[in-house]
Design a protein around this nucleic acid. Structure first.
Lengths: 123, 123
DNA sequence: CCAATGATGTCAGCTTATCTGACATTCGGG
DNA sequence: CCCGAATGTCAGATAAGCTGACATCATTGG
């Protein structure tokens, strides 16, 4: 009984909800959008509306940022145009750097698992 | 990996979204709430926030209303305190009436299947 | 038949949520 | 030291939501 539209891809969440679900600020969410990392729909009144998939994507972005990657890095990882081209060495170094950083500074990262399976977390 | 809180029961949807998801008016949704049939949470700013479970409940209510039941009938069906007590005959007549009505006037009911399935897992 | 009731529409006045754009801040690396 | 990336914050404007009241329209019990 497949639904007409899968709920996971249906834009039903306002930015306020996404803020609490991702623990990101509205500023951050909008900024990531400007960087082309998420593409929320808009209501007739121009308000952003997100799907669960967007929430997952944002959580991934957050994790990747926390692991030391830059938004540009993440952008590239999202679009595997070609596996990696000329400037690969730079990218590799980036990744390595991220790896190292991730190891050494396992800082405060209360961001739970992806919302996908069961949405939230929170006692 | 059960989540602390299942997405299905997490209040993340504003009433506008619920309106489109259920094809009910805000007036109807709020009225059903006043009748004790749904219990949305509230934001700090007093805005209602619904969970997917609420959406399903509302769709059920809509179907039952369309089948001829009254909100009071639906209320009783929700709380099977005791199967049926003193005033059962009245309830029975209600049910019968609903049955008949349901048969005769299979009117317009474009409400798709429950939204339930399709939100919480990935294809 | 008629008044009472249930379900819904609609409007007004108000508060909250979100939007955009601009300026400020912080921090790491060349 | 300066620059750019990422984020905070504030102001002014619009959309979205809230409550309460009055209107409408069937149904139904008397």
């Amino acid at each position: 009984m497949a639904e007409v539209v899968d709920l996971r891809s249906r834009a039903v969440l306002p930015i306020g909800t996404v803020m609490t679900l991702t623990a990101l600020s509205a500023r951050q969410i909008r900024y990531y959008e400007k960087q082309g990392l998420v593409h929320p729909q808009r209501t007739a009144g121009n308000h952003r509306m997100y799907a669960l998939n967007d929430v997952d994507a944002l959580i991934d972005i957050k994790d990747q940022l926390a692991s030391g990657l830059s938004l540009d890095d993440i952008k590239r990882l999202r679009k595997p145009r070609q596996p990696v081209n000329e400037t690969s060495d730079a990218a590799v170094r980036q990744a390595l750097r991220a790896e190292l950083l991730n190891q050494s500074r396992m800082n405060q990262n209360p961001s739970g698992p992806s919302v996908s399976q069961g949405f939230g977390f929170r006692p």
